[in-house]
Amino acid sequence: MSTGSIMLTVDGESRSLVIDTRTTLLDALRDHLGVTSPKKGCDHGQCGACTVLLDGRRVLACLALAVAHDGAEITTAAGLSPDGEPHPLAQAFIDHDGFQCGYCTPGQICSAAGMLDEAGKGAPSHVTGDLEGPTVLDDEEIRERMSGNLCRCGAYPGIVAAIREVSG
C-alpha cells in the first residue's frame, strides 16, 4: 500500500491528510474527513450523487483520485449554504419540493451550480441549437445538462423548476 500526503480546502477549511493512493476523492471526503454531504450512489460515475465543485467545476468525486488533487478547493452542498443560509438553489429545491429522499440532492445542487456557471460561460450542450448566440437555459437544456444526476424518487419536475427559477 502506498500513500500520499495532500492538502485540500473543503468548504473553506483547509485539511491535510495522508492517504492511500487508491482512495477516491469521495472516500477521502466521507471516510477520512467526515464530510458526508456528497453521497455515494454507485462509485462508478453513473449517478451523480457524489458531485462536488472542484476548483469551481462540477466533478464526480467517486471518479477522482484524491492524491491527484493536492491543493484543490472543494465545495460541497454544505459549503454552498454556509452558516445555515441556504444558497438560492438550495432554497429553490425546498420551495419546489425538488427532492424526496434527499440522497441525490446534494449532488443535484452542486451539479446545478456548476452547470449554471458553464452555461453562463457559453458552453453548449448536446441540445444547443445555436452555437454562436448566448445560451438560453430552457427546460430542455436544463434536463440535458442535468442528466448525469439520477433521482430515483423521480423529483425531476421539481428539480427542473427549481433550477429554472434560479437561472431565470
Binding site: 458526508t36 453521497k39 452542498a77 438550495a90 427532492f99 434527499g102 440522497y103 440532492t105
Partner: peptide, 27 residues
C-alpha cells in the same frame, strides 16, 4: 407544508446510515 428536514437534505447534512458519526469504524 415544505418538508421539515428540507434544510438538512439540501445541504447534505441529514445523516443517512453511513453518515452517522461513529468512533473508529472498521469497513
Amino acid at each position: 407544508v415544505p418538508r421539515l428536514e428540507g434544510r438538512a437534505k439540501v445541504t447534505g447534512t441529514a445523516p443517512y446510515a453511513y453518515d452517522q458519526p461513529v468512533e473508529a469504524p472498521l469497513y
